[in-house]
């Protein structure tokens, strides 16, 4: 297992828009190998929290400290414009941050890494296809492959199972499960989800986002979905 050193620390942070605070009083410590689900009702600020942790949104007060540069994220697939005729392979190569003076070379090692990641998510045969032409589930898996290109210590995913059919959801969670058990390269994974039952068997802890607060709660993966839903106030619709 990757060492359990702290990858991300949040101290008394508040996030919001303009002068409006959506979330406040956040204290968090994320360490290597952890698997956390971010759950909560619609509009509670799950994505705001994720963007704050990524550094895409500055905290209004407090601090977010990332102790690793190797951070990757998977956006919601519908945030990306279908107007770009990117091939799936080109999309995955984007995940490699290697550049020299702003020039990004797709060296042989980058291309080989991209093929391995595509193979890992079961999309190697789709490498030449346009990203926009893939199904929702395939697109999401391609985005996970892209995120893995930098060998992240910390992987953040924004509703990767949203708008995806059940078999694809299971595939995506299966890939994340495999990542979490990889012996020497398990990244810490934070995943925003809208269905508790999907992540109940995967996440060891839940960040419950509601009423402007973030509560960290441990979950027993053997608990039934009904019991968990009771604990999290019927979060499956969140």
């Amino acid at each position: 297992m990757r060492d359990k050193r702290s990858l991300l620390s949040v101290r008394g942070a508040a996030f919001g828009f303009g002068t409006t605070r959506i979330l406040q009083g956040i204290d968090l410590e994320i360490c290597g190998g952890q698997a956390l689900g971010i759950l909560g009702p619609n509009g509670a600020g799950k994505t705001t929290l994720l963007r704050g942790l990524l550094g895409l949104r500055k905290p209004m007060v407090g601090a977010v400290e990332r102790h690793t540069k190797s951070v990757a994220y998977v956006p919601q697939q519908d945030r990306l414009s279908p107007e770009w005729p990117l091939s799936t392979f080109e999309l995955v190569c984007m995940g490699s941050a290697r550049s020299r003076f702003g020039v990004r070379w797709h060296t042989r090692s980058v291309r080989e890494a991209a093929e391995r990641k595509l193979d890992l998510v079961g999309l190697l045969h789709k490498r030449a296809e346009s990203f926009a032409d893939l199904s929702g589930g395939q697109r999401q898996r391609a985005l996970i492959a892209r995120a893995l290109m930098c060998g992240p210590d910390l992987l953040l995913l924004d509703e990767p199972t949203s708008g995806v059919d059940r078999p694809s959801q299971a595939k995506i969670m299966g890939i994340l499960g495999e990542l979490g058990t990889a012996s020497d390269s398990a990244p810490a994974i934070l995943l925003v989800a809208h269905q508790l039952d999907l992540i109940a068997g995967w996440a060891k802890e839940i960040l419950w986002v509601a009423d402007g607060r973030v509560d960290r709660r441990c979950v027993d993966t053997s608990d039934s979905t009904e019991k968990l839903e009771g604990l999290f106030g019927g979060a499956s619709h969140g």
Partner: peptide, 16 residues
């Protein structure tokens, strides 16, 4: 490639 990345997915570009 850099121009494509910052235009297609500015959030990833920023994270990188």
């Amino acid at each position: 490639r850099s121009l494509t990345l910052v235009s297609f997915d500015p959030e990833l570009a920023k994270v990188q």
